[in-house]
């Protein structure tokens, strides 16, 4: 996708072009901290390569008058077992200012990895990050209320990981069929 950018530039849908314009502003500010732009027609995205910059990037995206990504539509967790990584995908939109939208991916190590929390930037991220932690097990540094949200607090394992095996018993109750 990345190297096909130039020739694909002319046939990029208008929505993707808007996302590209927004991405260019972010790229100009943060340089190598962000990856190349991926003109995915369903949801164009880029990845935060330097995860320590994620909160700064988020604040810039929310507050810069040309970007104004004031709405986090979704934050999802992803498991990448081949790369031994976990990640999140944030879908961002700008309500009342611009029509552009973009997705941001942030990845971390699969075992004991952590991602900076953006719940101070978008309050939506608070529960979404808790859910991502609940289901995948990455931690979110600086999260104000870092607990499981759906599974019981003393649940073992992270259910949406590809290699998840359910526990045999929970409080003496048999779990598998």
């Amino acid at each position: 996708m990345d190297n096909g950018m130039e020739e694909a530039g002319n046939i990029m849908p208008a929505a993707v072009q808007e996302s590209k314009a927004a991405y260019d502003i972010i790229k100009e500010r943060f340089g190598s901290a962000v990856s190349e732009f991926d003109a995915n027609p369903t949801m164009p995205f880029f990845e935060v390569v330097d995860t320590s910059k994620w909160v700064d990037i988020a604040l810039f995206m929310r507050d810069d008058s040309r970007l104004k990504f004031n709405y986090m539509a979704c934050l999802s967790g992803v498991d990448y077992p081949e790369q031994n990584q976990l990640g999140i995908v944030c879908n961002l939109e700008s309500i009342g200012h611009h029509t552009h939208r973009i997705a941001v991916k942030v990845k971390c190590q699969r075992d004991g990895g952590s991602i900076p929390s953006v719940s101070c930037v978008w309050h939506t991220a608070n529960w979404h990050e808790r859910e991502a932690y609940d289901m995948y097990g990455m931690t979110f540094d600086g999260h104000p209320d870092h607990r499981r949200i759906l599974c019981p607090e003393d649940w073992t394992g992270y259910p949406l990981r590809k290699d998840y095996q359910v526990q045999e018993t929970y409080h003496g109750i048999k779990v598998p069929y």
């Binding site: 359910v166 598998p176 069929y177």
Partner: peptide, 19 residues
């Protein structure tokens, strides 16, 4: 008996008669 969650529903009790 757990219904449609009998296999992949890690969070579902497979029949209330277990408790």
């Amino acid at each position: 008996c757990g219904g449609p969650y009998w296999n992949h529903g890690y969070h579902v009790l497979k029949g209330v008669d277990r408790v």
